[in-house]
Amino acid sequence: MVARPGCIEELAEIIRGSGPFGFQQMGLWSLPCEAYGICAMPQGAMGLCIDFGELNQMVDFSPADLIITVGTGTTLSKVNQLVGSAGLCVPYCADYIGGDDLTLGELIGLNLPHPLERQFGSWRDWILATKQVLADGTICKSGAKVVKSVAGYDIHKLFVGARGSFAAVAEVTLRLYPKQEPRPEARNSANIIHRVLPSDFDAMANSYRNAVFFDEATATIYANVPAFFEPLRFERDFVIRSGVGRMNFQLGQVNFLSRAKATLDPNNKLNPGALIP
C-alpha cells in the first residue's frame, strides 16, 4: 500500500495510526533508492510505503541570506531551478548515483559521496534545520533557519544518512552557494562507491578496473563492478554498494545506531531494517 500525504499534518496522521512501513520518498520504486535500500520494506511484510512526492512546496527562499526551506519531496533539479534564477545552487552532484531527479529526502537519507564534496562539503554541512514527524506522530523541528546556530543538540544532522530510520523528515532548510558552471554529464551511474584515506588512494585506484570516476580530491572511486566483486579493503575506509540493498551497507558505530533507533523509534516502525539489519 502506498500513502501520499499532501502536508506534514497528513504525514503525522498516517504515522500515528500505522504499523511498520517503509518510506518511498518520490514516486514508486525509483531505482537508485530501492537499490541502496532506502525503501526497506521487509520481504513479505504487510506495511505501508509513504510517497513524499506531494511534500514539494517551497516554504521560504531568501537569496540575500543564501538559504532555502523546502519540502523533502522536491527533486534536486527543481530546487536548483528555483534558486538558479538568483544565481545560487545546492552544489550536490548526483551524476553517478542516478541524476538530479532524486528528491532531497532521498539524497539526504542516503548521503552518498559526490564529486563536488572537496569544494563545497555535503548534506551535513548544508542542513541548517529540519521539520519532521517522529515515530509517535509528533511534529517538531530542530536547528535554526540561519547559517550559524548552536541552540540545542544538532539532531537534524543525525537524520543525514539515516535512510528514514529515525524520523520522517518533511521539510529542510539548506544553505546555498553561488551557481556552478555545468559539469560534463556522466555517462554511467556507479554501483559501488569506495572512499579511503588519501594515503591509500593509489592502491585502491589500482584495484578497480571499471571506475566511472576517480575523485582524487576526496580519495573516492565511483565504479561499476560485477555482483561477485569483492573490494580490497583499507583502514578506516567505507564502501557503499548499489543493487543489493541494505545488506551491503557497511555500518559504523552499531552501538550508537541501535541506541538511537531504540530511543527515536522504540516500536521499529520507521523503515525497519533499512539501517540496522
Binding site: V160, F166, R236, L257, A260
Partner: peptide, 11 residues
C-alpha cells in the same frame, strides 16, 4: 574517525 563524511549517521 573513518575517512571523512561517512554516509551513515555520524554521532
Amino acid at each position: 574517525g573513518t575517512a571523512p563524511n561517512c554516509p551513515w549517521p555520524d554521532f
